[in-house]
Design a protein around this nucleic acid. Structure first.
Length: 256
DNA sequence: ATGGCCAATTTTATTGGA
């Protein structure tokens, strides 16, 4: 089973490209972030015609997450496990077969120390609490745009970015704390080298120069991670015009 | 080759992204 995750940066802008990519790569599950559309704008019928079910949680203009799957999703929930009322659409969970899947879009945080940064850190604590509860149930995959480059290897110029947003110690600790509940960063099971990125700024020729960060990931609970046969980043999808500024990330699992 | 911000809306500026 292949699970992919892609910050699409507006599904409506990217729909044709997304459908073409779905048809060529045929993943069993795709987690999307920054769909930037309301639920009534979600292209349910086009995805159905492509052979996929849709579970989605959107809002006007910003954020928005979805899980697209060949198999029908069960137990869809569009929030973290707590009862906090969050107007930002950043989480959706669904059960696909025997795997609980989360599509998450972590807050950007704007600048270290800003109110947005405080919100980001609190959101991470809520996410961790939620996933800790989920993990007891069985296989768990958490896909998304984490807006954190976990290690120096995930940054094109680690010294330039040190302490900056997405690379600060507190953000990296928050990401690590997620992993410590028993989630494995699948890309690093198969690739240890630097230079593998999932986001490149639209400005200053960042992509041709490979000045990127790896801020998107597929995390898997330990038993499932043991079945992860391959993982990667589909950087081809960052090429050309009218692309998202993110590339899809993916992991392949046997025996599910 | 992959190319010098982009997307949505509040629309000819502003806000947020990362």
């Amino acid at each position: 089973m292949r699970i992919a995750s892609w910050n699409i940066n507006s599904l409506r802008r990217r729909q044709e490209r997304f459908l073409a990519w779905l048809a060529s790569t045929k993943p069993e599950v795709v987690c999307l972030q920054e769909t930037k559309c309301t639920d009534d704008q979600f292209p349910v019928l086009d995805l159905k015609a492509a052979g996929y079910h849709s579970a989605f949680h959107g809002q006007k203009s910003y954020n928005g997450v979805a899980i697209i799957s060949k198999a029908e999703p069960a137990d869809v929930r569009a929030s973290l496990c707590d009862e906090e009322d969050d107007p930002q659409a950043r989480v959706i969970a669904a059960t696909i077969g025997d795997v609980r899947v989360y599509s998450v879009y972590a807050p950007n945080g704007q600048a270290v120390g800003s109110p947005a940064y405080e919100y980001k850190m609190k959101w991470y604590a809520r996410l961790r609490n939620c996933l800790q509860r989920e993990k007891r149930e069985g296989h768990l995959v958490v896909c998304g745009d984490f807006n954190v480059a976990p290690k120096d290897e995930d940054v094109y110029d680690a010294d330039l970015w040190r302490g900056a947003i997405m690379c600060s110690d507190d953000e990296r600790r928050a990401f690590e704390a997620l992993c410590e509940i028993g989630l494995v960063d699948t890309l690093r099971l198969h690739h240890r080298e630097t230079g593998l990125f999932s986001w490149w700024d639209y400005r200053m020729l960042a992509f041709p120069k490979n000045r990127g960060l790896r801020i998107d990931a597929v995390l898997a609970s330990e038993a499932l991670a043991a079945q992860c046969t391959a993982a990667g980043i589909d950087r081809e999808m960052r090429k050309g015009r009218e692309t998202s500024d993110h590339a899809p990330v993916w992991a392949e699992f046997s025996g599910t």
